[in-house]
Design a protein around this nucleic acid. Structure first.
Lengths: 203, 203
DNA sequence: ACATAGACTAATTTTCTATTTTGGTCGAAT
DNA sequence: ATTCGACCAAAATAGAAAATTAGTCTATGT
């Protein structure tokens, strides 16, 4: 029995095409045809794998979310100091958003004018990130780096600041698209904010 | 020669009506008729005082801006510690936005999908606030409370965080309107962020 | 001159309708 | 198990018709 991997599963191929098209046009402006055409398939065939457009979009977001959280998890070594983990977190978070474009869009566009199920996806991701940061903070408390705090409360605060800085960057930018310069500035602000936060909870 | 003040100037009356209506409906959805009707005037008469709708809106924003900056200036006593000034600033800023509704809207709504002249108004206000905070930080440096920093850079960072937190709050809120609870949370986050910031630049 | 407003216009917005596109289904083919 | 052409109903789009609205001009009273 040979497990040949020359071909990735069809599902994977579809997801990649969908990821690409959704990132390019957004959920509303991407048609099922766009996605099918991208991989030379018939539109109807997509419905063999996904019950509807929304579920395909959900799968794409889920994929990016998993990738995001998995990559972040890698940076968390129980041996490392919580301080350095938090610092690495901020940096890696920014870099990951460049790959997880749909996730980034979810964080960048307003969530008020979007479908309820998209809002749910965003909130779910937010919750998971709060959870993750909570665990880092707890780790820091356990090894005596951080003062006794409410991990969840503080994690929510940090997430608000990070989300906010991204929004503020979009708000302030000159063109309708963020330039390299904008990203550089955003990165700097993120690092600064996280440093400040860490400083504020040191023992 | 007697200076009777029983009647406020017509210009003032118009500005108040415009402020009210713009705050209620926004720039686009407020008609010159709405404003004129509010004070029992003919629409055409407004054009005796203001050349166009935009200039009337500008005047309203200017008025709120002046009020905002003037009120803030009051809190800055050269004798007070820069630390306390910054803390008061954060609190007063939030309270003032509840009165300067059009200014708050400018800060709350996205600025990307609006007229260029509105974007300019926002940027101008932003600049003035950066200037103001800069002066507070410099004051703090002069009296030896704050470490040697670049006041403008730090001021811009604080403004980004404050703008961002407001945006994040809008992002996270359940309803399309902010509840008392949302405001309470936003207030807490603002205070916390400013405290953190102050802490980060102490000598 | 100072203020005000009715009547008017050009431009913009809104509304309504005809047309196309798109999400989704089904049965046939492979 | 997988793919797709043909089809449908719903949604988006486009374009013309109708209604609002910003702004002007002139007349009128003060």
């Amino acid at each position: 029995m040979e497990t040949i991997e020359k071909e990735e599963g069809k599902l994977e191929v579809i997801l990649k095409a969908a990821q690409k098209k959704f990132a390019e046009f957004g959920l509303a402006k991407t048609t099922m045809n766009d996605i099918a055409a991208e991989i030379g398939m018939g539109k109807a065939s997509l419905y063999y794998y996904f019950s509807c457009k929304e579920s395909l979009y959900e799968a794409v977001i889920s994929k990016e979310q998993d990738h995001f959280l998995q990559e972040i998890q890698k940076t968390i070594k129980p041996t490392a100091s919580a301080i350095s983990i938090m610092k690495v977190y901020a940096k890696k978070r920014m870099r990951l958003f460049e790959y997880c474009l749909n996730l980034a869009k979810l964080n960048g566009d307003g969530v008020s004018n979007c479908l309820p199920f998209v809002k749910k996806l965003f909130e779910e991701f937010g919750k998971q990130e709060v959870e993750l940061i909570s665990s880092i903070l707890e780790h820091g408390m356990n090894i005596g780096e951080f003062a006794p705090i409410h991990p969840k409360v503080e994690a929510e605060f940090v997430c608000s600041v990070m989300l906010g800085l991204r929004q503020a960057a979009k708000y302030r930018m000159k063109e309708s698209l963020m330039t390299k310069e904008d990203y550089k500035n955003l990165n700097a602000n993120m690092d600064k904010a996280v440093d400040m936060f860490i400083c504020s909870i040191l023992v």
